[in-house]
Amino acid sequence: MQSADVCTTQKAAEILGISVTSVQQLVEAGVIEAWKTKGGHRRIPLAAVHAYRGAPAPDAGGQSRQAANAVPAILVIEDNPMQRQLYDKQINSWGLQASLRFCENGYQALIEITRHKPDILLADIVMEGIDGYEVIRTIMRDPQLAEMHIAMLSSLTPDDLAERGGIPSGVVFFSKPVNYDELRGYLRACCASHARRVAPGA
Rank of each mutant, 00 (worst) to 15 (best):
E78A: 01
D119T: 09
D88W: 05
H41P: 04
I44K: 07
E33T: 05
A123P: 02
Q83N: 10
V126D: 15
E112C: 13
A47W: 03
G54K: 04
H41R: 05
Q66V: 08
I111T: 14
Q108Y: 06
T114K: 12
M82V: 11
A68F: 01
Q63V: 02
A67N: 02
V49R: 07
R115V: 12
I91E: 09
Q63S: 04
A98G: 15
L100K: 07
A34R: 05
G61Q: 08
A68E: 01
L110V: 11
Q90W: 10
N69L: 08
E104R: 10
A70D: 07
L75T: 05
D88A: 15
A57M: 03
I91S: 09
L100C: 11
A34M: 02
G95N: 07
S64H: 03
A55L: 00
G39K: 04
W94K: 08
I91T: 10
V126M: 15
V49F: 13
G54P: 06
G106D: 13
I44H: 12
D124H: 07
I113T: 12
H50L: 06
I44R: 04
L96W: 14
K117T: 15
I125Q: 14
G61F: 03
A51E: 06
V71D: 00
L75H: 08
I74D: 14
A48V: 01
G95E: 03
N92Y: 10
L121K: 10
A73R: 04
A34L: 03
G39M: 01
I77N: 02
H41N: 11
A47T: 05
K117S: 15
D59K: 00
A57K: 01
R43Q: 11
N80A: 09
Q90T: 10
R84T: 11
I91D: 13
Q66A: 12
L86M: 11
A98M: 06
A60F: 12
H41A: 06
I120H: 05
I111K: 14
Q63C: 02
R43K: 07
G106N: 14
H41Q: 10
A109W: 06
Y87S: 05
A57L: 02
I125H: 13
D79W: 03
R115H: 15
L100D: 15
P72N: 07
D124W: 08
A51Y: 05
W35V: 01
K89M: 06
Y87P: 05
E33N: 07
Y52D: 00
Y87V: 00
A109I: 03
H41L: 02
R65G: 03
R42F: 15
L100N: 12
L121F: 12
A123N: 03
G106P: 09
L96E: 09
S64P: 00
L75K: 06
A67W: 01
P56D: 13
A47N: 10
Q108M: 08
L122S: 12
M82C: 07
C103W: 04
N80K: 02
W35R: 07
L86Y: 11
G106V: 10
D88M: 05
V76T: 08
E112G: 06
I77K: 04
S64A: 09
A73F: 02
R84E: 13
Q85K: 10
K89A: 12
A98F: 14
